[in-house]
Write a protein that binds this DNA or RNA. Structure first.
Lengths: 146, 146
DNA sequence: TGACACACGTTATAGCATAACGCAATTGAT
DNA sequence: ATCAATTGCGTTATGCTATAACGTGTGTCA
């Protein structure tokens, strides 16, 4: 009784644990660490970090969640669904950049073709084969800087 | 007997611990974790992580070392000394990007004005005040991809 | 000479992530 | 139908990364 349950919507069907983890992230205004997610889900039967990490691995694979490397934390993908650069299943995109407010914790996700292109050009020139690109800007958001 | 010792060269004078940590990093072909650095320096009297982290904090502040967020590891700055975008003391620069080979561990450090500019433009438009920007490309270097 | 800043050393603890085991359920080929 | 392969799950234990909190020594400078 552990298999994914298909849903009326798009995207890959999520298992129960995956849904729980995604929902927690999706409802959060700020990035969450795996252990914070774990604590939020104790009431739903979560007891060990691996339950969270395994769900996160899948959600990352599906592109539904991003990992913020500079925070060791995770956010739900903020893409307005079926954006540009799609790979077909509604959650694909090129490299995404994040602006992280160090005061309020809010994260803005955005994409810039030109940045992508410049980094791609560098890679091509150096014969480097990119697998995953991380772009994170930490600072103060408009509201907090004021 | 703990104060920085001035050297014949440029830049801020380093303390003994800072020099030791920097030398280890500078001699390494690949990024090193704080704990790996610690192990390398046991023979020089290092016994606790804090000794490493404190030295790293200063070296980061001086711009002589970079932290790779996606690796939780550190590298000596590869800038050919007194590069562009200098802030005056020979180790200043704009945002730097890293290409990290997941096979051999080699890290290439580079800078792209246009990328800087695009990210800066986004920030300006959103009224976001950047403090620190991280750009890391993980993949395979030319040698390993072949 | 006394307040201050800073580097240092030590112990303890917090926070993030995975290894290794075994069980249960689904899939799909035979 | 059945067996092998795959995938998800739960648990325990462990490892790696980072910092808190304490106290010491030293150099600076009013």
């Amino acid at each position: 009784m552990n298999a994914p349950v298909s849903t009326p919507t798009s995207a890959p069907a999520l298992t129960k644990n995956q849904s729980l983890v995604f929902d927690v992230l999706d409802r959060s205004d700020a990035p969450m660490s795996a252990y914070t997610i774990l604590d939020r889900l104790r009431d739903h039967g979560f007891r060990a970090p691996l339950q969270v990490y395994r769900a996160l691995d899948k959600l990352l694979e599906f592109g539904m969640v991003h990992r913020l490397e500079s925070l060791n934390a995770f956010v739900a993908c903020a893409h307005p669904e079926s954006e540009c650069c799609g790979k077909g299943h509604g959650h694909g995109h090129g490299t995404v950049a994040f602006a992280i407010c160090e005061s309020c914790g809010h994260v803005s996700e955005f994409h810039d073709h030109e940045v992508d292109h410049r980094l791609g050009a560098w890679a091509k020139a150096k014969n480097f084969k990119p697998a995953k690109t991380t772009i994170e800007i930490r600072g103060l958001c408009g509201a907090c800087a004021a």
